[in-house]
Each structure stands twice: as C-alpha cells, then as structure tokens.
C-alpha cells in the first residue's frame, strides 16, 4: 500500500519537475522538418476550437505525395482532431471551428468553392472501430462507387469491387460469400473491408484514425502490410497509439503534445535521436 503511494508520488514529482523546466515544456516552434516540396496536403497556421476550448494551436505541416506520415502523442493531444480537419469530418461536430489555411494540392479545403462531398471522395477515411454498413460485403464496397456514379454497368461495378477487395487483401477470403453481411466478418476482416470501401472510390489520400486499436496482433500485422502496399498509390495519414506501429509503417512521424505540433522528422530519427525533449520523453515511455 505505502510502496504504491510512494511510487505514485515519485511519478507525479517527476512529471512536476518535467513541467517546471521551461525549455522542455513550452513548444515554441515545431522542430525537425514539417515542410516538404510540392506537398499533397498543406496546412498553415491551423487551429481548431471546440466551443471556447482550443484543441489545436497554429500548426504548420505539409504531407508529401505517396508519403505515409504517422501522428503520435498522448491522448487528447489533438492528433485525431487534426486528421479530421483534412476531410472536414469536424463539420459534423457541433460548435467546432477551424481556422488557418488547408490546401489539398491547389484546392482550398475550407474554401467556399470546395464541395465537401467531392473532398471526401478525394480524401478517404478509415476509422478506429471497423464500421461496415449492415449490408452485404459486395454492397459495402459498391456503396461509394454507386453514390459517385463511378461504374457505368454492373460488370464495371463488379470489377471495381473485386479490385478494391484484392487491394485490401480480402478478396481470397470473401470471394465466395460476397452476398453475406459485412457485419458477419471478423474484426480484422471488417477493418480490411472498410479499407476496401475507402479505396473503392480511388481517393488520393487515405486518413486512418487508429485503424488497428480494436484488432488483435495478427490482424494488426496484416493491416500494416497493407499500408505499406497502399503507400505506392496513395498518400496515407495514420494516427496511432502504438509507437511500434508508427515505426514500422511510416516515413515521417509527427509528435503532437497538448494541441501543438512538437516535432516532425524522419521516422527513424524520431525513434532513435529525437530532437525535442518532449518527444524523447514520450517515446521512452516517461508519460503517455
């Protein structure tokens, strides 16, 4: 009992000393290299507010073409919020306000000319919890192409569905039961179905919000392989709580802390020789 208390106090005081050292906690500017040439997505001075509370503070970040960028950081640090600004999923949240400049190539994401439906067709998303529709496996994948009129005929639609499922690595497992409900698949299969659904409308960017957090290690490994394959054709932004996962799948890693972007660097550099003290503290498990 007393040992536990002492342990807790120790941790607390460690954190306190950590907080009291100004050069370690105050994030002035993002260190590393957040900007790249000819980016797919460009965010400048990006801030997000939920009501009166500011969730993201003046972030500058570029995401390159065919890059896999991982976003890591403790819970509530704003990484998911940032992710959801890219396809404007924050629009559905009451009281959410976004400021700053967001460009998808040349197009202003929050501009008046931007059609949010078209934006989301170009920026696909995979969610934390697999969320197949209560429809058949086929209809789950065919949903997007049907909405956007991508298939002129039934044969074309079949092709799109087959290709999407193949690219998501699910085809072999489900080709004989396409008419069965998507909700009947296992968790890992459901998530791959959701990835197939996302790539069925040929997006340019795929956002992944902790795509493996509800999956077992084998299903996780399968998804990670898939991300590596998908990176050849898509730009991928992945939010993850697992630092190993970030290290395995991403080219660059961005570390968020309390709504601020602390460090962006080559993944290898982040996990071997981080520039910022906060990043180092996080990846060595001092807090999280």
């Amino acid at each position: 009992m007393s040992a536990l208390t002492m342990n807790l106090t120790a941790t607390a005081s460690e954190e306190n000393s950590f907080d009291s050292a100004p050069e370690q906690t105050v994030v002035e500017d993002t260190v590393g290299f957040p900007l790249v040439d000819d980016p797919k997505i460009r965010a400048r001075n990006a801030s997000v507010f939920y009501g009166d509370k500011q969730a993201i503070f003046n972030i500058d970040l570029d995401i390159g073409k065919h890059e896999v960028i991982a976003m890591i950081g403790p819970s509530g640090c704003g990484k998911s919020t940032f992710l959801r600004t890219i396809n404007r999923m924050n629009d559905t949240v009451d009281g959410c306000r976004v400021s700053g400049e967001f460009l998808l190539e040349e197009d202003n994401i929050y501009g008046s000319k931007m059609d949010v439906v078209e934006l989301r067709a170009r920026v696909g998303m995979v969610f934390q919890k697999p969320n197949p529709f209560p429809k058949s496996i086929f209809d789950n994948v065919a949903y997007g192409p049907k909405i956007h009129g991508l298939a002129g005929s039934r044969v074309e639609l079949d092709e799109i569905v087959e290709n999407s499922l193949k690219r998501a690595g699910l085809w072999a497992e489900v080709k004989d039961r396409l008419q069965q409900p998507g909700t009947g698949l296992s968790g890992g299969q459901q998530q791959r179905l959701c990835i197939a659904r996302a790539i069925s409308i040929s997006p340019e960017v795929i956002l992944m919000d902790e795509p493996c957090s509800a999956l077992d290690p084998i299903a996780t490994a399968r998804i990670e392989e898939l991300i590596a394959e998908l990176a050849e054709n898509y730009t991928i932004v992945i939010v993850t709580h697992s630092m190993q996962q970030a290290a395995r799948v991403s080219h660059r890693t961005a570390y968020f802390h309390l709504g601020k972007l602390v460090e962006v660097n080559e993944t290898e550099k982040v996990f071997t020789t981080p520039e910022h003290k906060l990043t180092e503290a996080y990846i060595t498990g001092r807090f999280g």
Partner: peptide
C-alpha cells in the same frame, strides 16, 4: 455514429446516408 461517419467519409450526402445506411440499419 460510426455508421454515419463511415458513409459521410465516403462522400455521401446527408440524405444519401439517411436513405441508404441509416434507414436500412
């Protein structure tokens, strides 16, 4: 809500989401 998000994130409009995902569900 994840069902709605899934549909909206595919670029479906609100009414398409209601007709094709929410009502069937």
């Amino acid at each position: 809500q994840t069902m709605r998000d899934g549909s909206l994130a595919l670029g479906a409009t609100h009414s398409e989401t209601i007709k094709q995902v929410i009502i069937p569900a």
